[in-house]
């Protein structure tokens, strides 16, 4: 329905080569913690408006890769630029242009949804007047009218995650990084969540998302499968299924992830 349509249009958009405009460029990016190589020479590009999926078992290095790209940790070696800014020296410039939703719920529990939107909007420099207007609209879209002034702590997890995503893209970033955004969320809410992701992508926001739900991987324009810190495969879901001769991304993933030697 909604999702499959959007999927097709986005895929078509990608196929026309002249529209390609990389917003994340990553070359041999590596992160070591002592002797442990969390991320091992990963190379890829993500284009503007793309939904880029990052798949991998727990401990495969997805989060570490994402944290390097969002300027939270320094890479050990390799190069990367995000929104045109180098990850070694221009992290603060990167931070202006990205949204980030971490694995852990990171809104303030003892503030209301409205107060959280206002705070994070303000931190990213959205003018107060604009915050006022748009936050009202956003609360309506999320169906949180009755909860707008209650504390976030009292919301169900699915609503919290949708709110956290809305907050992460409130300042209209070029790229949004989502680290397992739907962990522990029911299937219906996950579906709604992906509708929101498609809506954001249609506005030109690039989506970089990690997940270990294989059905979600099918929603992405392109996916990367990470095993033990290395990129094992990178293509559209359709191409991957064809290359590995499997019926679903789930089976492709099992084929590749079986090689993993790293324990969680």
């Amino acid at each position: 329905m909604n999702i499959t349509e959007a999927n097709i249009t986005n895929n078509n958009g990608l196929l026309s080569k002249e529209e390609k405009e990389p917003v994340i460029i990553c070359k041999d990016l590596t992160k070591k913690f002592g002797d442990f190589v969390a991320v091992d020479h990963i190379t890829f590009e993500v284009n503007k408006g793309e939904i880029f999926g990052f798949l991998g078992a727990n401990g495969a290095g997805k989060t570490t890769a994402m944290r390097m790209l969002s300027g939270l940790i320094y890479p050990t070696s390799g190069q990367a630029s995000v929104a045109g800014f180098d990850v070694y020296h221009k992290q603060e410039k990167i931070k202006k242009n990205i949204g980030y939703m971490s694995q852990r719920f990171s809104l303030y529990d003892n503030l209301s949804p409205l107060e959280n939107i206002t705070f994070y909007g303000g931190v990213y420099g959205v003018p107060r007047k604009e915050i006022k207007e748009r936050s009202r609209l956003l609360i309506e879209q999320l169906g949180l009218q009755n909860e707008a002034n209650k504390l976030v702590a009292s919301l169900p997890l699915g609503w919290k995650q949708k709110l956290a995503f809305s907050v992460a893209i409130f300042h209209e970033p070029k790229i949004v990084f989502l680290d397992e955004p739907t962990g522990g969320v029911d299937p219906i809410t996950r579906r709604q969540f992906w509708d929101m992701i498609y809506e954001a992508a249609s506005r030109g926001i690039t989506i970089f998302v990690t997940t270990h739900y294989m059905d979600e991987a099918e929603y992405c324009n392109r996916i990367t499968i990470m095993v033990d810190g290395k990129i094992e495969a990178l293509d559209t879901p359709g191409n991957l299924k064809r290359i590995y001769n499997e019926n679903s991304i789930n089976d492709v993933f099992y084929k590749l992830a079986r090689k993993a030697t790293r324990e969680e």
């Binding site: 969002s70 300027g71 939270l72 603060e92 931070k95 202006k96 990205i98 980030y100 971490s102 852990r104 719920f105 990171s106 809104l107 303030y108 529990d109 994070y120 931190v123 990213y124 420099g125």
Partner: peptide, 13 residues
Amino acid sequence: EMGTIEQINVSPI
């Protein structure tokens, strides 16, 4: 501990 500091660290503040 809450993890909210990461959200601050990833912002341009």
